[in-house]
C-alpha cells in the first residue's frame, strides 16, 4: 500500500514539473529560419535531424530554440528532439521546396542528323535555389533559337517536377540553340545538326601518272548538306591482281584515292551502309 502511494506521488510531481515538449511549425519553406517553442525547464539537449543534417546543442528547456536557415535548405522531413533529465520528446516537421528558380536541363542528342522527326528530347527538372525538386506543377517555357531564324517557343507544365518536349531537327545543318526558362533560370543548350547519310554517292576515275585517280563528287546528304569531313568512304577495286580496298576519310567535301589497275577493273564505293555507283576501267599491264 505504501509503495502504491509513493508511485502516485512521483507521478503527480512529474506532471506538475511538465515533461519537455517541442512545438515546431508543421511546414517550413526551404531556406527559412524558424524558432521552435519548447516547454519544461532546466538543461536540455536539442537535436535536429534532416536529409543532410544531424546537429546537437545544449539549450534551456522552456525557451524558444532558433534554427538557422542554412540548416533548413534541403526539402524533406526533419525531426527535432529535445532531451531533458526526464526523457526525450520529439516532433517531425516538413521542409517544402522554395519557389522554382533553377533548371536541370537535359537535351539529347548533342548531335543529330538533319530532318529527323522528334529526334531531339529536352527535359527540364524544376528546382528551387537549393536544388530541391519543386513537385507542384509549374509552367516551363521551352524555346528553339535557330542560327538564322525566328525563335519558336512553347510552354509546358511540369508534372512531378519534370517538363519535357520532343523536337524535330531542321533540314539545314548547323548548330541550333534550345532554351528552357522558369523564374530567373534561363538555360541554353546547343544541338549540332549534322548531315545525314550520303545520298547519290558517285565516283569518277581519271588517269594519274601510273595509277587511276578515283574520286567522289562532293558528298552530300539528300537535303543537300555536305557530309562532314572525316567521314569514311570505302573504295573497292577488283582486277586481275585481286581485290583492293581503301577506307578514305572525306577531305574538303570529297574522298579520293589513287589505285593501280591491272587489266580491266571494277571500282565501287560505299559510305557506311550506303553504296554508290560502279565504274569499269582498263589499265595497262
Amino acid at each position: 500500500m505504501r509503495s502504491v502511494l509513493t508511485a502516485f506521488i512521483v507521478c503527480l510531481f512529474a506532471l506538475a514539473a511538465g515533461a519537455a515538449e517541442l512545438h515546431p511549425p508543421a511546414q517550413v519553406t526551404a531556406g527559412n529560419s524558424i524558432t521552435i517553442a519548447t516547454s519544461g525547464s532546466g538543461d536540455a539537449t536539442f537535436y535536429l535531424i534532416g536529409q543532410s543534417v544531424a546537429s546537437k546543442r545544449h539549450v534551456q528547456a522552456g525557451t524558444e530554440i532558433a534554427v538557422d536557415s542554412e540548416q533548413l535548405e534541403r526539402a524533406g522531413i526533419y525531426t527535432a528532439i529535445l532531451c531533458a533529465s526526464d526523457g526525450c520528446a520529439s516532433a517531425n516537421f516538413v521542409v517544402t521546396p522554395a519557389a522554382p528558380n533553377r533548371l536541370s536541363f537535359l537535351v539529347h542528342p548533342s548531335r543529330v542528323p538533319v530532318d529527323s522527326p522528334n529526334r531531339i528530347s529536352a527535359v527540364a527538372f524544376v528546382q528551387d535555389n537549393f536544388h530541391n525538386f519543386v513537385l507542384k506543377s509549374e509552367a516551363v517555357k521551352f524555346s528553339v533559337l535557330p542560327k538564322d531564324g525566328k525563335e519558336i517557343s512553347a510552354t509546358r507544365n511540369s508534372e512531378n517536377g519534370v517538363a519535357w518536349v520532343r523536337l524535330s531537327s531542321a533540314k539545314k545543318e548547323g548548330p541550333t540553340r534550345l532554351g528552357a526558362e522558369i523564374g530567373h533560370a534561363n538555360e541554353i543548350r546547343v544541338v549540332q545538326q549534322v548531315a545525314a547519310d550520303a545520298c547519290n554517292l558517285r565516283i569518277k576515275a581519271s588517269r594519274a601518272k601510273k595509277d587511276f585517280l578515283v574520286e567522289t563528287d562532293p558528298v552530300k546528304d539528300c537535303s543537300g548538306n555536305s557530309v562532314p569531313d572525316g567521314t569514311v568512304v570505302s573504295f573497292t577495286k577488283v582486277d586481275e591482281a585481286g581485290k583492293a580496298t581503301v577506307d578514305v576519310p572525306i577531305k574538303r567535301g570529297v574522298a579520293k584515292v589513287e589505285l593501280p589497275v591491272d587489266g580491266r577493273a571494277k571500282i565501287t564505293v560505299a559510305s557506311g551502309v550506303v553504296t554508290g555507283n560502279e565504274l569499269e576501267v582498263a589499265g595497262g599491264q
Binding site: 537535436y47 535531424i49 525531426t79 528532439i81 537535359l106 539529347h108 542528342p109 528530347s121 527535359v123 527538372f125 508534372e159 512531378n160 517536377g161 519534370v162 519535357w164 520532343r166
Partner: peptide, 22 residues
C-alpha cells in the same frame, strides 16, 4: 513515374516503411 526519352534519367516515387532509431 518518368523515364526520359533518351533513357538517361528516371524519376520514381517510393513509399517506404521504416523503423528509425536515432
Amino acid at each position: 513515374i518518368f523515364y526520359s526519352p533518351a533513357g538517361d534519367v528516371m524519376e520514381l516515387r517510393d513509399r517506404a516503411k521504416l523503423d528509425i532509431e536515432i
